Amino acid sequence: MSRLVDAYFALLKALIALLLAAMVVLVFGNVVLRYGFNSGITLSEEVSRWMFVWLTFLGAIVALREHGHLGVDSLVRRLPLWGKKLCFVVSYALMLYAIILLLVGSWQQSLINWDVVAPASGLSVALFYGVGLVFAISTIPILLGGLYRVLSGRASEAELVAIRESEEEDVDEIQRRHLAEREGFDGVALGRRAGGVS
C-alpha cells in the first residue's frame, strides 16, 4: 500500500512538472508570436490559466503530505503534550470540514458546468472545477490518517507540530556540520603538534 501511495505522489510531482513546462511553452510562445509575428495561440491564455489552477491544487496535495505548508508553530511548540494533541486534532478537524465543503462545491459546480464549453479551447468547464474533486479525494485520506495516528497514540510528539521548518532545519544542519568539521580539523592539528609535525 505504501508503494502505491508513493507512486501516486510521484505521479503528482511529474504532472506538476509537465504542467509547469507546458505553461512556460504556451505563455512564452504566445508572447514571441504576438510581438515577433503579429499572431498568437488562441487558447494559450485560457489553457495556461487552467494549468496554473491545476498545478496549484496538485502542489497543495503534495505539500500537505510533506507538511510543507506555511504556519506558525511558536505557541504549539511551547504547549504540553495534551495541548499539542488538542491543537492538532482541532486544526485537522477544521481542515477536514473546509475540504468537505470544497468537495461538495466542486462536485456541484462540475455538474452544473458539465455541458458548458470554454470559449477558446472548447473544453468542458467541468474540467476546471474538477481539480477541487481531485484535491479533496487526495487530501481527505491524508488528514484522516494523521487524525488516526494522533487519536490512537501512535504519533510522536514531533509529529504533533504539523509544520516542517525546512529553513531552520537546514541552518541547524549546516551549523552542526561546520562544528563537526572544525572539531575534526582542530583534532588533526592537535595530533600533528603532539606528533612533532609542523
Rank of each mutant, 00 (worst) to 15 (best):
E157S: 02
S166M: 14
A22W: 10
K85L: 03
F57D: 01
A17Q: 10
L11T: 08
L19Y: 04
G195V: 12
S39E: 12
I137R: 12
L151V: 05
G71F: 07
A93N: 11
V72L: 09
A22D: 14
G195C: 09
R65A: 07
I41L: 05
P119K: 02
V32W: 13
V25W: 11
N38K: 05
A118N: 02
L103G: 04
A180H: 01
G59N: 02
F128Q: 07
W114M: 11
R78D: 14
A120H: 00
L160D: 11
V150A: 15
G71V: 09
I163K: 15
S39F: 00
L79M: 15
A14F: 14
V5H: 04
A194L: 14
V5F: 06
A21T: 10
L26R: 00
F57Q: 01
E173L: 08
L43K: 06
I112N: 13
R34F: 00
A17R: 05
L123P: 05
L64W: 03
V25Q: 03
I163G: 12
I61S: 03
A158F: 03
G130Q: 07
A22H: 05
E183Q: 06
I163D: 14
V188E: 10
T56K: 00
V125D: 03
A22L: 15
G191L: 08
D73H: 05
L33F: 07
Q175P: 00
E181L: 14
T42L: 06
G71E: 01
G191N: 06
S110K: 13
A21I: 02
G83V: 13
R65I: 06
A126D: 06
V125F: 12
A194V: 14
V89H: 04
S138D: 13
L70P: 10
S106T: 04
I112G: 11
D186E: 13
R193D: 14
L64C: 03
I137P: 03
K13M: 01
R154K: 15
F185A: 03
L70T: 11
D6H: 06
F37A: 11
G40F: 03
